[in-house]
Amino acid sequence: MILFRWHAVASWTWDAQDETCGICRMAFDGCCPDCKLPGDDCPLIWGACNHAFHLHCILKWVNSQTPQAHCPMCRREWQFKG
């Protein structure tokens, strides 16, 4: 009895510490209020402080905070991770 072909199935979710986005309070597995579809269309982004938000949410926040934006969670200066 030899296994020689295998179709496996896996599902992915965001790997964030919190369940929900700190800005819109929506689940990370859901999407930000502006999007209709979760997943690749509404990705998460991590800051240098390791806090994650919906990309769309944090971009809105960062763009509204000039000259320097801070992480909404820890008030450290916001830097995109990586």
Binding site: M1, I2, L3, F4, R5, W6, H7, A8, V9, A10, S11, W12, T13, W14, D15, A16, L44, W46, A52, G82
Partner: peptide
């Protein structure tokens, strides 16, 4: 997969997997 897509978690859905066996 995780090296390709960071910030994700992968969960295996074993109930959906299927195989071909040679017996």
């Amino acid at each position: 997969y995780l090296s390709k897509y960071s910030g994700r978690r992968l969960m295996w859905q074993n109930s959906l997997g299927h195989c071909v066996l040679k017996a």
